[in-house]
Design a binder for these strands. Structure first.
Length: 216
DNA sequence: ATCCCGAGGG
DNA sequence: CCCTCTGGAT
């Protein structure tokens, strides 16, 4: 099977973009948040957990620890109880406190706005940093590659890679920068509603004719 | 048994 | 590259 050229892949990506944007005009970040601090907390909690579950625990978390200064002083055991249902609760509680401490010590209590500074915070990897930059600060620094984006990019053959960093590189090659943040939202919405992990509904998919994995 | 807006450590 | 951390939904 001949490898699709970059030009052909970009054109197919553009067509996919147009149809998904039309299908999900109000695709957005589904993690409830009012500011960069809240989004940072919510995104750290979102690892291997549904956003719906995260949104169940964050209201109490934000009520008890409204700002980085409060979270930096939190007792880990109390925080563990609040975030317990999101899974990985010991790591997440420890990282949240460590993140808040670092934000206080290194950034005067403000969530930083660069990939390098964000990535240096405990519990903040490239994916989480991209979420914060794109959704709290409006900076298209990269593409958020979560489990949905990875699965859909693979099925649509927009990449042959499985490592999230390499998947992101490939997506950055075929989509224009100003689309990077919204691209993740579109793929995540589509992944939830149509291109599900276990039972993809190809018959209901608006881009099935552009998808090499489609069975219809 | 598999999946969910992963990160850190070896 | 691999492994571990974890609960809840389906």
């Amino acid at each position: 099977m001949p490898r699709e050229s970059l030009k052909a892949r970009r054109e197919r990506a553009d067509a996919i973009w147009d149809l998904l944007e039309e299908e999900y005009p109000d695709a957005h970040c589904a993690l409830d948040h009012r500011n960069a601090y809240e989004l940072t907390v919510a995104t750290i909690l979102s690892a291997q957990c549904t956003d719906e579950r995260v949104n169940m625990v964050t209201p109490e978390l934000f009520r008890r620890w409204p700002e980085p200064a409060d979270l930096a002083e939190a007792r880990q055991e109390e925080l563990e109880e609040v975030v317990h249902s999101t899974g990985f609760y010991r790591n997440k509680a420890k990282n949240l406190i460590g993140m808040a401490e670092a934000v206080m010590e290194r950034h005067g209590g403000e969530i930083p706005r660069t990939m390098e500074e964000l990535h240096a915070l405990p519990g903040v990897g490239r994916k989480t940093a991209n979420v914060i930059l794109g959704n709290a600060f409006g900076i298209d620094e990269g593409v958020v590659v979560d489990t949905h984006v990875k699965r859909l990019a693979g099925r649509m053959k927009l990449t042959r890679e499985t490592d999230p960093v390499k998947v992101e590189r490939d997506l950055m090659k075929v989509f224009a920068r100003e689309r990077w943040t919204m691209l993740s939202h579109l793929l995540i919405f589509h992944g939830r509603q149509v291109c599900a992990a276990r039972k993809p509904r190809c018959e209901a998919c608006v881009v099935s004719h552009l998808c090499p994995s489609s069975r219809v």
